[in-house]
Amino acid sequence: MADRIKQFFVQIGDLSYFAAHFFREAFKRPFEFKELLRQCYQMGNRSLVLVGVTGFIIGLVLTLQSRPTLIQFGAVSWMPNMVGISIVREIGPVITALICAGRIASGIGAELGSMRVTEQIDAMEVSGTNPFKYLVVTRMLATTLMLPLLVVFGDLVALYGSALVENLKGDVSFQLYFNTVFDALEFGDLVPATIKSFFFGFTIGLVGCFKGYYSDKGTAGVGYAANTAVVVSSLLLFVVDFIAVFVSDIFYEL
């Protein structure tokens, strides 16, 4: 038991070291710009459909589920406000991040894990390319930069899904719906959510790269790396979310 607790703290320490290493390397030349673009494409564009479908269904279901209650209270006209705020502030970023943790963190974990196992990382280092820079920094930057965009995209699709339900069931025009949503939203909703998304992206990249980069020898290690990358990053996302809510509370008295 004591060993497990120790292991936990060792992991946290290693992860922090890894993050520090990232910041040391990220701002040092040479920049692997081409690889960054490639990774951005892999993580951004390739996740679009997944995020879009998830967002659409979430918006749809959230609206369908809360309609009866709001009707009971006679507050069904507040639906755009409620759904809009909850999606932009919390559900959009968290769902998108979780989806990406499943897709991206496991992908990175498996990819880097197998590269480590087949000595590709060593080969890279020997051929004069810093593998940390080439593999880790680009991926972490890519997730950090792409996730906010995915979140915005996911939010929009989710709101569209919600508007669709309101339009069909409640005869609310799209214009009225989005007008109401943007009336209800404030910078205090959008800004913390966007900043939070950057941290979500960073967390996903960090855990995925960490687990893959230091994966143990052997193919079993690759599977383990991919698996733990998803579990740890999902868990860490909620911790980050928790912290983010507290911090944004300070800046925006909500």
Binding site: M115, T118, E119, Q120, A123
Partner: peptide
């Protein structure tokens, strides 16, 4: 390298 270590991607 032992397993060739070609970059898969």
């Amino acid at each position: 390298f032992q397993g060739s270590a070609l970059y898969d991607s």
